[in-house]
Structure formats: structure tokens, C-alpha cells
């Protein structure tokens, strides 16, 4: 390995990382300063911001966020696994590409555009309600907008690509001969899936769950627009405190807490999912 080249290639990334570190340091600094109402510049050192967070109003948001993230990750996994399996196993290259394009597209739509699209689908006069009303299954529109269900649907949509990509990577590493060996030994397709394919995709499932969880934690536009203030996640709280109330110190403290919570949840996740991951260990 040519060392000079290595240094050259790593420099841009190192510069970006340094920039992020500085930003983080600034946020950390803000988090321990007092907020003076009506002023943009903060006051002196205090830990009040962190005490404030323990109030049920704020602690509830943290709890809801973790719950929503978990729900989203699990639902994205359930929706993504069949897609990933079909994509990896499809023999026809056109079908393969079609599944890939369909599942990855949400990643390339702007968050706001994608979320407004959901408004059209979920709204009272939207596609789902219109269709169900037309069928006569319901006689008044369901409340899909401004609801947890709607937000989760939007979040699953944007988490799906990540989950599908991670799962398909894991599934494509499973040696097809293992499945052939299982069928030849007399196992029916469902048994093969449950005893060979699924256990061997566990590392991918664990990776997809954790990544899906972390990915959702930072969601902003989806809960902001579809939730319409009724479904709040940590990022929405940071936004409203920072940019509506101009309470920068508290917003900074919330950001830090959110970050720590993500790291903590991921560590916990990893620990809890360890037996699952081991199941697929080679």
C-alpha cells in the first residue's frame, strides 16, 4: 500500500469529519448554557436544560420516538424481506431491476415531495379514503392524516430502501447449494425457508433492524407534515423549540439527548439481537 496515496484519499473525509466534530462541539456548548427569553444569545453555564427534559411532556416525546422507530423498523423489515428475497432470487433480470427500482426510488425523492405525496394518498379526500368510500366499506373518511398510523406508513416508505438493500446483500450471500441440499434431504420449501434461509439471513435482519431504527430516529419532514403537530418526534421538538421559540440551548440539549438515546438504543438492540445474529453465524 502506498502511504502517500492513502493520506491523500483520506484527507477530504477527515476534513468533513473535523467540521462535524466542531459543529457537535458547538451544540454541546449551547446545551449547557442558560436560555434568556427574548434573547438570541445565551446566558451562563447551567444544567437546567437537561433537567427540563425529564418533564413528562418532553420525556413522552422521547418515548414515542423510540416506539415509532421500533415499529417502523419492524414493519419495514416485514415488508422488505419478501422484496429483498424476490429481488435476489428472481431469474429474470428485468424483474430484478424492476424490484430494485421500485424499492429504492423513495430514497431519491426529496423528503418533502415524498411526504406531500402521502398527503394525497392519506387525506380525507385522498386516494385511500376515496376508494374505500366508493366501495362503500366506510361511510365517513378515516383519520389517516395527523395520526400515528399515517406517520408510520410514511416512515416505513422511506426506511424500506435501506432495509431492502441490507437484506438483499445478506440474502445474496447465502449459498444456494444449502437450500438445494435441504430440499434434496426431503424438506418442503417452507421448511427450507424456516430452517435454512431465514436463520442464515439473521445477520442481515439484525443489521436492517438497527439501521432502520437509526434511520427513522432522524426523520423530520414525515412526522412534521403527516403528523401535523399531533405526532411529535425528537427532531420535531428540536425544530419547534429552536426555530419557533428560539430556545437554542434547550434545542441543543434535546439534540444531544436524542443522539445519546440513539446510540443507547442501538447498543441495547445489538445486545438483545445477539442470539439471533449468532444463529446465522458461519
Amino acid at each position: 500500500m502506498q502511504r502517500p496515496f492513502l493520506r491523500l484519499f483520506v484527507t477530504p473525509a477527515a476534513l468533513v469529519a473535523a467540521g462535524f466534530l466542531l459543529a457537535m462541539a458547538a451544540i454541546l456548548q449551547y446545551a449547557v448554557l442558560a436560555h434568556i427569553p427574548g434573547e438570541l444569545t445565551p446566558g451562563g453555564f447551567t444544567l437546567r436544560n437537561f433537567q427540563e427534559m425529564l418533564k413528562p411532556l418532553y420525556a413522552g416525546v422521547f418515548f414515542d420516538t423510540v416506539r415509532l422507530c421500533f415499529l417502523t423498523a419492524v414493519l419495514a423489515l416485514l415488508a422488505g424481506y419478501p422484496l429483498a428475497l424476490a429481488m435476489v432470487r428472481a431469474r429474470n433480470p428485468y424483474i430484478k431491476s424492476a424490484i430494485l427500482i421500485i424499492s429504492v426510488t423513495p430514497l431519491f425523492l426529496g423528503e418533502v415531495v415524498r411526504t406531500y405525496a402521502w398527503l394525497i394518498v392519506l387525506g380525507n379526500q385522498g386516494f385511500i379514503n376515496g376508494f374505500l368510500l366508493w366501495l362503500g366499506i366506510i361511510d365517513r373518511p378515516l383519520t389517516l392524516m395527523f395520526s400515528t398510523g399515517g406517520v408510520v406508513m410514511g416512515l416505513v416508505h422511506v426506511t424500506l430502501p435501506v432495509v431492502v438493500i441490507m437484506l438483499s446483500a445478506a440474502i445474496s450471500h447465502i449459498d444456494r447449494d444449502l437450500e438445494k441440499a435441504a430440499v434434496a434431504l426431503g424438506a418442503r420449501p417452507l421448511r427450507v425457508f424456516l430452517t435454512v434461509t431465514l436463520p442464515l439471513s439473521m445477520p442481515g435482519i439484525v443489521a436492517a433492524l438497527t439501521t432502520g431504527f437509526a434511520w427513522t430516529f432522524s426523520a423530520f419532514a414525515t412526522p412534521q407534515i403527516i403528523g401535523g403537530g399531533r405526532v411529535n418526534m425528537v427532531s420535531n421538538l428540536v425544530y419547534s423549540l429552536g426555530f419557533s421559540s428560539f430556545n437554542f440551548p434547550f434545542a441543543a440539549a434535546l439534540s444531544i439527548a436524542g443522539l445519546l438515546l440513539t446510540a443507547l438504543s442501538l447498543a441495547l438492540f445489538k445486545l438483545l439481537l445477539r442470539p439471533l445474529e449468532r444463529m446465522g453465524a458461519k
Partner: peptide, 10 residues
Amino acid sequence: VFQSYALFPH
């Protein structure tokens, strides 16, 4: 018996 043996690693 496969060329790769195809033993279940798990």
C-alpha cells in the same frame, strides 16, 4: 453430496 458439501453452517 455436493461439490461444496453444502453443510449447514448454522
